[in-house]
Structures are given as structure tokens and as C-alpha cells.
Amino acid sequence: MNETLLLLLEWTIKGALLAFALATGFAYTTLLERKLLARLQIRIGPNRTGPFGLLQPAADGLKLFFKEELTPANVYKAAFLMAPIMTMVPAVVIMAVVPWGPPIDFFGRAVSLGISGDLNVGVLFLLSVASVSVYGIVLAGWSSNNKYAMLGGLRSTAQMISYELALGLAFVGSIMLAGSMSLMDIIRHQQATNWYIFYQPLGAFVFYIAMLAEVNRAPFDMPEAEQELTAGYHTEYSGMKFALFFMGEYIKMIAVSAIFATLFLGGFDGPFVEQWPLLGPLYLILKVVALLALMIWIRASFPRLRYDRLMAFGWKVLLPLALLNIFLTAVVMVVFNVR
């Protein structure tokens, strides 16, 4: 077999693996959320389907397949169909630049773990995909031809655009420390020194808050403020189209957690990862699960912000903090002659 075919095969397998991992991760994140929320509220949570309720996600999925799929009469059909897909696709695509582990030796062939971890514009790729992911929501809101959906769509779009700025600026501290936009280089530099959360506590703090807002999680779950907007942009969706929105949302949660882990927690870094590269994905998954648990904990603890407070917080607190972080990082790097 020639090299091109081998490369094609390698990428196909890695892509399929990633898609499978994200789909499974989505299913079990819903279970984790329900279980953990229940425990935090002194309930038990789903425990009837399978041992400890482990088959609950499968039952949920099956139920959604059998739901009637309604398309209301006055929607803009093409956009209405496209919106769930356009929400789902960026959530999966963004994971392409996150490395899962150090390169492994696979039957005498060096295989890098990750789709394209060494891309020299990796961080820019994250930003560009994040900026495109708004369209699914804004389209869903508009095409539903429903005032609640429209308001929910516009609100969440405004929110995502505002917090994207703070998110993008929070990347910069890590880029400055590593001197590279490649996520692999960022991880390698953290392995050589320390995890960036120790050097960039402010950056990590800003990033975490901004990423909660970016994936519309509580306390920033404005589009789903059910007292005001019924269900926001996905009010008119049902059946598998609704499931796609749901899936996109949870996969986004996983993706931003993985990005946070890569930028601030050393990515796949951990003890003995150089001797046994396959430990890399395991460490990454552990970090992602911990970050997801933190997200769920925050959801159980904080009430939802009022909308104008949310925008003011993003523009007047988070954005200046992110700028301050860049300034401080630059000053410290120059004074202590880091590079």
C-alpha cells in the first residue's frame, strides 16, 4: 500500500474514533449531569435502567427516535432544517486541533494522536470555528417564525459574540508563554515547565467564565430562560431535530472543557505519559470529566443572571480583566526575561 492510502486510512480511523468518542461522551455527560444534579439536590436521580441507571442515555435516545417530528406550517423550511446541523457540526469540528496524546508507534509507523494537533494556527482555528458556531442558533431563532424563538436566538447570539472577545483574549496569555499557536507546542511547553493554570490563574478564570457563557450554560443560560422565553431558540423543534440541538450543546461542553484542559491543565500531560503514550487520552478524559463536573456544580449553585447584567459583566468586567491579564503577562515576561 502506498503512503497516501495509508494516510487516508489513518485519518479516517482517527476521525471515526473522535466522532464515536464525542457521541458516547455526549450520552454519558447527560447521565453525569442528571446524577450529579440529583445528588447536589439530595435526590437519587435515574437509577432504574440498567445498573446504577447506566443504560438511561440509551433509553433516552430510543425515546427521541420514536417522537413525532413536527415542522410547523409557517417556518422557513430550508433554514429550519439546516439550523440543527449548523449547531452540531462546529461543535465536532472544533475538536480536530486538540491533541489526545504524544505520538505512538503503531506497527512501525509513527501515528500522532489527534487529528491535526500540530497545526501552526491551531488557536486561530478554535476562534474561527467558535465564531461560526453562532449561525445555527440565530438561524433556528429566525426560521421558527416565533417571537420567543427569535428573542432567544438574538439573545444568545449577542451573548456569544460578546463573550467570544473575552474568550479570545484569554487564549493570548497561553500563546505568549508558549510562543506558539500550535496546541501541541503549548502542551509541550507546559510539560517542560508547569501547567499554565499556575502562571495564568487570571487567564484561566476569565476563560472558564467566558466558556460557560459561550456554551450557554447556567448561570448564563439566557436562551433557555423558560419563565421568559419558553424554550428559546429551540421552542419549535421536536424529535431528532431537537435531539441534534441537545447533542450540539453537550458536545460543545465537552469540546470547551478539552480546550481548557489543553490550554491550562497540560492537556494529555500526566505521570508516565511519555513511557506509555496511551495514558494521554485517559488523562485528557479525566480532566474533561472534572471540568464538566465543575460546570454542573456551578449550575446547581448559581441562579441565572438578568440579561442586562450579563452583557454588562461581559463587556465591563471580563473584557478588561482579560486585557489586564495580557498586560501583566507581558510585563512579567519582560521583567523576568522569560523568553
Partner: peptide, 24 residues
């Protein structure tokens, strides 16, 4: 690749979202 990413972020992302906002 740099220009490609900037093209997506600035044109396909930021500017067109504003266009859509105004139209809607």
C-alpha cells in the same frame, strides 16, 4: 493557513453575523 483562519473569523464569523442581525 493564517489568512484562511482570519478570513473565516472576520468575514464569515463577525461581519456576516452583524449583517444577519440587521436583516432580521
Amino acid at each position: 493557513p493564517f489568512i484562511a483562519m482570519v478570513q473565516v473569523t472576520v468575514y464569515a464569523g463577525a461581519i456576516m453575523v452583524l449583517f444577519l442581525f440587521v436583516i432580521m
